[in-house]
Amino acid sequence: MNRDLVERKIFGTLRWLVIGVLVVVTVLPFYYMVLLSLRPIDKLLQDPGDLGISAGELTWSTYGDVLTSVADGGQGFLSLLTNSGLVALATVAITLILAVPGSYAIGRLRFFGRKQMHFLFLAVYLFPSILLAIPLFVFFTRAGLRGSLVGLTIVYVAQAVPVSVYMLRNYLASLPASIEEAAAIDGCNRLQTVWRVIIPLAAPALMANALYIFMIAWNEFLFALLFLVENRPSWTVSLGLAQLAGGIEVPKTTLMAASVILTIPIVLIFFAAEKMLTEGLTSGADKG
């Protein structure tokens, strides 16, 4: 018992140490990002160790510089935001249109080859995306789609569909079969059942799924780099930031503002999705 007491004391203290260190390590880079985005560049170079906020020095000019169009002497991130937003929203819409019937089939219908399909969708992830990138690069060059947002969206949809099917399948499989049987007795065919019964029931899962796909598309970098790098007007925010960060012309504080702009939508979406996910799991379908 004595040794147990000692161990409890040690690990009880250690626990708080671990929590403290982890919070600092995860939050500090984001705090640093926001702080630097609001600080004039000469202040950063003079006193790089300063982590405090002094209200007098804060500047919003970095954000102005980032968002102003290139023609007006800024970095033109407003149009990059539009590009990223369009690609991400299109990816979400197309992926869901494809994944809902697909995941319903894999999750709820017994058909020939169902297990193999499920395996195929998982096996996709064994292959590095750089391997896919080469033939797609060749194909899009030939088809003249390289440099266009349409080509990029197609690739993102293909990347997101297997994950989306996998996530939705698990949710749909958990819905009670009695609901569908009731719909069938009421005269619904499969398509009507999916449209009128399954989709409304799966709405929270669909929403969480949509947000997750949005995150994948918004954060993606490799394909944007390969396909769009020569065509500045169609850059995404990620690509724009990476390209400018490689150079020395743009001040680091301005790029920090760009990082904040890139990160904020994702953080907002994440906290919205976290709530939605838990709500989706707690609301029972059979209760009502």
Binding site: P29, F30, Y32, M33, L36, M215, W218, N219, F221, V237, S238, L239, L241, A242, A245, K252, L255, M256, S259, V260, L262, T263, I266, V267, F270
Partner: peptide, 14 residues
């Protein structure tokens, strides 16, 4: 969850 381009840039500066 944060975009890789943003966090890698912050690490680079840090």
């Amino acid at each position: 969850i944060a975009p890789v381009v943003a966090v890698s840039f912050v690490w680079e500066v840090m």
